[in-house]
Every structure is written in structure tokens, then in C-alpha cells.
Amino acid sequence: MEFTTLVQVIINGVLLGGVYALAAFGLSLIFGVSGVLNLAHGEFLMVGGMAVFLLFDALQNVWYVNPFILVAVVAPLFFLVGLVFEKALIQPLTQRKEHVRLASAVLVTLGAALVIEDVADFASRGSQYEKSVDFFIPSLVIGEIYLETNKLVMFGLVLILIVALFIFLRFTYVGLAVQAVTQNRRGALLVGVNTTRINAIAFGIGTALAAVAGGFEVINSMVAPNIGLPLTLKYLCIVVMGGLGSFLGVALGGVIIGLGESFLGFFYPAWSQTVAYLLLVTVLLIRPKGLFGK
């Protein structure tokens, strides 16, 4: 393998991993705070991407808008969607016994995922199935290495969002409360944290992050009604691999899987999609609570 190819593969892997990490952050936040495996997470990503596509498509002839701006418009809407989703579907489950809660959360979020996917599928009838936004900026060439500017912008935005999230978690009351609930729900409740509100906020932020990732997907490659569940599964791999509630773990997990897919995609393309699951199973076998889990 030539050096420049190696660099190209690594860069692609890290870029891919960055977007993975972003959506996985959202999922991790939700999982950490509410203990719920949100199997509908990937659906919000898909719908977020669809929303960006529809806005772009509708505005195309009127006003050629940078799709990244549309992503920023869509994100707050999905914060609200997350709040409503939590209020309607997740909150009622919180009082149940542990194994019942796990099972009912699986049911509720899976059912919601099926509904969202099927409605999106139904609504896409008669138009193209895979949707993508045509938006190109010339590639950047450094020596023999090509960098797609789209991806660079995206990666920059991912970094900014991750830093913002870190600052939020570290320096704001709500952020600290989110962490407290993740670590010890009862303890947080005892010191006066409004856990119901924190749950809702976590869902809001998590869903907004998924929608942003969906926006990036639609700009970078495509979204289609059936991508939701497989993506959810991949993000869950990242979250669990990194260790529940560990943000460093998620970032690292995302990048490892991105790199893994990029490398395997280069040598054995057929196996590249197995990376997430192989790594998940391997990591869990060695460390049952993930890389950074306690």
C-alpha cells in the first residue's frame, strides 16, 4: 500500500468516524440518561435527512441555499420532536421493573421505528427511493491527497458540535445534571435534580444530533426509508463498545469503526460492513461493559 493511499484511507476513516460519533453521541446521551435503548434513533436520522432534502428540493428553484444551513434549521425542530417522543412514549415506562422496562422500551421504540420507516416508505412512493442533495464544492488537493471539501466542512462542524456538547456537559447546570443522572439516577434525584426534565432534554438533544447526522448523510451520500434500523444498530455498537455514558468512549468508538470500515473497505470491500458488529462482539467479550465502561 502506497503512503498516499494509506493517508487517504485514514483520512476517510476518521471523517466517516466523526459523523458516526455525532449520531452515536445522541444515542449515548439518551441511553445514559434514561437507560432506554432507543431503536428509533436511526429513523430520526433518516427523517432528518429527508427533511433537509425536501427543503433543499423545494427551495432549489427559488433560492439556491447551502444545505448546511438547512441542517441548522432542521436541528431545533428535531429537538422538539425528541421532547414530544420522550413525553409520549418513554416517560410512561420509567416506573416499571427493570426487566419489564427493558422489554417495553424495546417494544415501544421498535414499534415507533417500524411506523416511521413504513410511513416514510409510503410517502416516497412515486418519487426516487434514495434521496440525496446535489451540492459540490471543489475538492482540495494537497500533493497527491484528495480531500472532498464537503467532508472537511462536515468534519469541522462535527468537531465544533462535539466541543459544544462537551462544554454544555461540563459547564452548564443542565449538562452537569445530565451527567449526574447518567451516573446515578437515584442519587441525582436525591440532590434535587428534576430527572423527568433531564430525560426530556436528553431526548431532545439526542434526536437533534441524529437529525444533524442525517442532514450530513443526505449531503454526503444518501438517505432512504430503510436505512434507519441498520444504522441504529451500528450506532448502538459504537455506544456499547465505547462504554455506557462515556463520551470519550463514543468518540473513540466512532473513529475506530470509521477507520475499520475504511481499511476493510479498501482490502476486502465485502466485509467492510461487518466491522461494527465484529468489534462490538470482540470488545464486549474482553470488557463486558465496553472500552470505557465502569
Binding site: L93, V100, V106, G111, A112, L114, V115, E117
Partner: peptide, 20 residues
């Protein structure tokens, strides 16, 4: 009839919510 996946999903949601 093409929405049967959605109806299945809806049933599953309702079961999870109201009759664990």
C-alpha cells in the same frame, strides 16, 4: 394495505405502552 408495517408498529407501540 402498504402501510401494514406501520400498523404492526403501532400495535407494538401500544402494547409496550399500555399492557406490558
Amino acid at each position: 394495505a402498504h402501510l401494514r408495517g406501520a400498523i404492526l408498529g403501532l400495535i407494538i407501540v401500544l402494547v409496550g405502552l399500555f399492557m406490558p
